[in-house]
Design a protein around this nucleic acid. Structure first.
Length: 109
DNA sequence: GTACTGACCAGAT
DNA sequence: CATCTGGCCAGTA
């Protein structure tokens, strides 16, 4: 048993908390969420945490996109469709390449 | 231990 | 625009 036996406790909750702060109609990137959660350079960890979210979670996971403004899920997945639909329902617009113009929709804390 | 794989990213080419 | 590279970090085989 040592300190590296477990990943730091509370990080997951911290990430959830940060995502919960993203206002409706805005998005944040994985890197942005990582930084705000005290995980600089931890974008991948954020992605992993999102992939492990419980099924009925109330966390607005759909408001997290990649640094290119795209949805980081397979286009043929139900999750992709769900994320895009939720964002569009909040007024977020996708361009012909399936990307959000972050200049317009990125959350600025 | 190595190797590979991801809901990632910035910079270089 | 497309690709590649190196960085990042966990989980899996």
């Amino acid at each position: 048993m040592n300190e590296s036996t477990f990943s730091e406790p509370g990080i997951k909750e911290q990430v959830w908390q940060v995502i919960a702060l993203i206002p409706k109609g805005y998005v944040a990137t994985y890197g942005q969420v990582a930084d705000l959660s005290g995980l600089p350079g931890g974008a991948r960890r954020v992605g992993r945490i999102l992939s492990l979210l419980p099924k009925g979670t109330r966390i607005p996971w759909h408001r997290v996109v990649n640094a290119s403004g795209g949805i980081s899920l397979p286009q043929d997945s139900g999750s992709y469709v769900a994320q895009r639909a939720r964002l569009e329902r909040e007024g977020i617009v996708f361009n012909s390449s399936g990307r959000i113009v972050l200049r317009n929709f990125r959350w600025r804390p």
